[in-house]
Design a protein around this nucleic acid. Structure first.
Lengths: 156, 156
DNA sequence: TTAAATGCAAAGCTTTTGCAATACT
DNA sequence: AGTATTGCAAAAGCTTTGCATTTAA
C-alpha cells in the first residue's frame, strides 16, 4: 500500500498510537519506525534526520540514515510528522501535533518557538498586504531578534 | 587583501562601477568576475550559481562553478550581491541594490516579488508580536497564494 | 614582480535511490 | 507466504576546499 498525498496534521499521543495509524493504513509497525518515533517523542524540539538515526544513548538503538529519511517521509504523509527549515543546515523534524511556529534571528541564529496565536496579527497583515495565507511552521520568520537589533543600532 | 564582514547593500549601476568597487578594495577586476556581474545585470530576478556559471548564449562565456561561488561570496561581502532562499533548491543570487522581498506559495511554488513598502504592515505586526525586525529578502514569506488557498478551501 | 584569482579535481554535507536480504502481517 | 521494509552502497544536488597555474595590478 502506498500513501499518496499529505494528510492534515494529526495529534498523536504516543508511539503506540502512531504505530496503530500506520497499521490502519496497511503499513507496518517496524522496529526502525518505533525507533524514529521514540526519538521524536523524546526530543525537545525539531531534530535532524542524522540525530534521529543516532538513536538515544542506552534507550534507543541507532538505525540507518536512509531508512530514517524514508520513514520520516511516510510519517509526514500520514500527518504524524512535519519538517521545518530553520535557516541553513539540515531540515528538522518534529511531531505534526505540536502546533508551533518559529522565528529565527539572522544574526545570532537563535530560534524562538511560539504558539500560533502569537502570530495571528502577522498572518492578518500578510493577508491584507498580499492575499497570502501565511504559515511560519515550515519556513520561519527571519529577522533580527530584539537583542541583536539593539546591538546593531548602537553601532556594534 | 581580505574582506572580512558584510557591508550594507550597495546600489551599483553597472558592471564597471562594480569592478571599480572591487579595485577600491584592493581586489581584482578579473574576467570571471566580469562574467558573473554581466549575467547578474542581465538576469530578470534571482539566479542560481549554476545558471551564472553557464554564462549567456553568445554574449557571456561560461565559467567555473567553484569560481562563481567564490566570486559571489566576495561580491556579497562587499554589499554588491545578496542571496535568497526560495524554498528548496539552490540559493539564488541577485544584485543587492534591488530592494525586493519575496512571497512563495507552498502549493504551486510561484514566487511573488514585491517592493519592501508592500510588507511594511507585516513588519509592524512582527515587531508588535515578537520584537523582531523581520525582513523577507533573505527568506521569503511562505504560505498559500490566493489561488491555491481558494482551491484548497473548495476541497480540491 | 607578486599576490590575487582561476580552473580543475576532490571532498563535504544533506538527501535520494537501487537492490538483495529481512521481517511484519 | 507474500510483500513492506531494511541495510548497505552508491549516487545526486549543492557548496566548499586544496593546489598548481595563470593573470591583473
Amino acid at each position: 500500500m502506498t500513501v499518496s498525498h499529505r494528510r492534515a496534521p494529526l495529534l498523536v499521543d504516543d508511539v503506540e498510537s502512531a504505530l496503530a495509524i500506520l497499521r490502519r493504513h496497511g503499513l507496518r509497525a517496524s522496529a526502525a519506525r518505533r525507533v524514529v518515533l521514540e526519538s521524536l517523542f523524546a526530543a525537545e524540539g525539531p531534530i535532524s534526520a542524522e540525530a534521529l538515526a543516532d538513536g538515544l544513548p542506552g534507550r534507543v538503538p541507532r538505525s540507518d540514515l536512509a531508512s530514517v529519511y524514508r520513514n520520516l517521509e511516510v510519517l509526514e504523509q500520514l500527518g504524524i510528522v512535519r519538517h521545518v527549515h530553520l535557516g541553513h543546515g539540515p531540515g528538522l523534524y518534529t511531531l505534526a501535533g505540536t502546533a508551533e511556529e518559529y522565528l529565527v534571528c539572522e544574526s545570532c541564529h537563535v530560534v524562538r518557538t511560539v504558539a500560533p496565536s502569537t502570530l495571528a496579527g502577522v498572518r492578518d497583515a500578510v493577508r491584507e498586504a498580499s492575499g497570502y495565507q501565511a504559515g511560519f511552521d515550515h519556513f520561519p520568520i527571519v529577522g533580527l531578534c530584539p537583542g541583536c537589533a539593539a546591538r546593531r543600532s548602537h553601532g556594534e
